[in-house]
Amino acid sequence: MENLMMKIAIVVSSTRPTRKGRHVGEWVLENVSRPDAHFELVDLAEIDLPLLSEPKPAVFGPPYEQERTRAWSETVAGYDGFIFVVPEYNHSIPAPLKNALDHLYVEWHDKAAAFVSYGVDNGVRAVEHLRGILSELGIAHVGPSVGLSLSDFSDGVVSANERKAAALDAMLDKLIAWCGALAPLRVSSDDNQDRPRLGCSDLDSAQAATESIIAELQDGIDQGNADIYNRHFALDVMWGNPNGGTLLGYEELHAIHGQLLSANVAGPSRYEIVAARKVAVDVVVAHVRRAAIDASGVALEPAAAGVFSEMALYVLVRRRGQWWLAAGQNTPIASI
């Protein structure tokens, strides 16, 4: 498991308008850089979960009835470990964090957690309380932690000294090691984990993901700008062109798109989603039509001279909270 890239969420747990938690989370994100781990900020103020109101206890797991619970389940399931950024409220943790933890159960299992706390007494009592909750949820919590006092802030922003940065580094060593050590349990806990459930019911999410990508493609074509067109192409994108060729990787594809768009080879066109399907937590497959249009925006018949329309099959993958184009196959069409 040494070569696995661990995906770790930095969870900002306070939602109070004047909170320091967001600054602490950003300080953590700025000070973590590892070749074997990818870190993302998850802010509970942005997740905006309601008070727990699922009709079934979380221990029974998915499917969930409420959309925000389903979205939170997908978010948590996508991480191997967590750094909880937690203040101390009345010798305990903030209510939004307890609520977020209680919404789920199996999604937390066999993962690792670490803590960056803050407050008058460094938030240590909140961490001690949180450890007991995480144990019940099957999360292994590492011993080393980072505690920030009020003296570690300047104008509301973290200005911690080198000793705190060193403590953060030591904590990360242990967290990443435990995430890797627990990886076999996450893989083997479900015999069908590698067999995705195809065509899940979350059509709204699939539609929104596809819309975000084709909006950029449309904007790029309209402006003749490859930087916009290729903005969310993955570095290792696979691209099948209408002539049967395959381009591997962003750099080569970006250069070719730059030439084609600057020369306006394809002419004006309009993207339309034919179908979009979410086939796994962070994967969408979409069938998209790019129809050639005239100056007034009316679709042109593909059989007309000089008209080029095509169908595209796109594979979108979500990373860092953003949908990226991982693969595309473009095929000319004879009729719309």
Rank of each mutant, 00 (worst) to 15 (best):
G138S: 06
A226C: 02
F84D: 11
W239G: 01
V124T: 12
K278D: 11
V317C: 02
D48P: 02
G119V: 13
A177I: 07
V288N: 01
Y314W: 11
W72K: 12
L198M: 13
Y229S: 03
A181S: 12
L148E: 01
A165L: 15
A183F: 14
V85W: 07
P17M: 04
E310D: 10
S189Y: 02
P332N: 09
I228N: 03
C200H: 13
Y89E: 06
R319V: 09
D152K: 10
G224L: 14
H91W: 15
R270T: 09
Y250C: 00
K174E: 15
C179H: 02
L101E: 03
R277C: 15
G147R: 04
D43K: 04
S205C: 03
I214C: 03
P94N: 15
L137K: 09
W239P: 00
E46L: 12
H129G: 02
A286G: 10
A112V: 11
H232C: 10
C200W: 13
S189F: 04
R70Y: 07
S201C: 00
K111F: 13
E216S: 15
S14A: 13
V317P: 00
S53H: 11
D202N: 14
E310I: 06
P94H: 15
Q259D: 10
Y64Q: 01
D190A: 14
I83M: 04
S188C: 07
I213Y: 07
I10V: 15
H109I: 04
Q218D: 09
I47Q: 14
W72H: 12
H141K: 11
V279K: 04
L130M: 02
E46Q: 13
G244P: 00
R289G: 05
H103S: 06
L97T: 14
L172H: 01
V120D: 12
A286Y: 09
G258V: 03
